[in-house]
Design a protein around this nucleic acid. Structure first.
Length: 270
DNA sequence: CATCGGACCTGTTAGC
DNA sequence: TGCTAACAGGTCCGAT
């Protein structure tokens, strides 16, 4: 589910409810997420005031003076702010109980997400090798072109590599490559510097627009207020196999690229 | 180092 | 209508 726009939408939704609040405790119903939830997380959070809610790549960081809780939503995770009495549904694996009677509740049927603890002044290994944020100045076509040199893997796969640039997953890789007019199967090393400049801008444009729309809801993504995201209505190729390209009318193609389903317009993308 | 396949899970949908 | 297989937004890890 969640790529950068969904995670950022989640961050913006929960931040005003969390910052300045004190955590009563972490209520864990199921520790078996991507990695077992360590006792250090509850110990790090309990009793401390929340200073901020940040996003790095597709990770959310809930900060206090002792460190940060790291949340990843995996494929099917979502967070909502609810009153503490709200009935618990299936797959709601933990609650962060706040001092104002609300809880931050985590829902994740597939349990590919995680909840980790990062002590202050420490960088968790998962965050150590991440590439630049798409909206940072260090992300540009020149960097993409340089890193792609000699790579034979498809450019779509390259764009989804979080060491190259963070936040781009299967949906937005397809959409950005469509916008840039690049065939997703093309070898990363065989895309020109000029076209990488176009692609970098396309990534920023697509992600920014998706954030404005509250992300993409395909099946179960919900914003923290329970509303779906509305970017699905604006998808140009993702999930549109056989349907006419919105630009030229050619049937949108689909095929697996690196084990992931991909969609593109064979006429607009070369 | 780059690339590939498998692994982790459950729910929904497509196809017979 | 019912059963089964395929597939789903992520990404780590080990083998090659």
């Amino acid at each position: 589910m969640p790529e950068l726009p969904e995670v950022e939408t989640t961050r913006r939704g929960i931040e005003p409810h969390l910052v300045g609040r004190r955590v009563r405790r972490l209520l864990l119903r199921e520790r078996r997420l991507r990695w077992p939830v360590a006792d250090a997380v509850a110990a790090g959070l309990a009793g401390a005031g929340i200073d901020g809610v940040r996003r790095r790549a597709k990770y959310l960081l809930i900060d206090n003076a002792r460190g940060s809780a790291i949340v990843h939503l995996g494929m099917s995770g979502s967070l909502r702010v609810l009153v503490a009495e709200a009935p618990v549904r299936a797959h709601e694996h933990w609650d962060l109980e706040l001092d104002d009677g609300h809880v931050l509740r985590y829902h994740d049927p597939r349990r590919f997400g995680c909840l980790l603890w990062q002590p202050a002044d420490d960088v968790h290994p998962l965050l150590a090798d991440l590439g630049p944020e798409p909206f940072d100045a260090s992300f540009d076509g020149a960097r993409l072109h340089a890193r792609a040199r000699g790579r034979s893997a498809p450019v779509k796969h390259f764009l989804m590599d979080q060491r190259i640039v963070v936040g781009v997953g299967n949906i937005y890789a397809a959409e950005a490559l469509f916008r840039a007019g690049i065939d997703p199967r093309r070898a990363a090393g065989r895309v020109s510097a000029t076209r990488y400049e176009v692609l970098a801008q396309a990534v920023r444009t697509i992600l920014a627009h998706a954030i404005e729309r509250g992300g993409t809801t395909l099946r179960d993504f919900l914003r923290p207020d329970g509303e779906p995201g509305y970017f699905e209505q604006e998808l140009m190729v993702y999930g549109r196999a056989g349907e006419p390209c919105r630009i030229c009318g050619t049937a949108v193609r689909t095929a697996a690229i690196g084990q992931r389903s991909s969609y593109w317009c064979p006429s607009c993308q070369r």
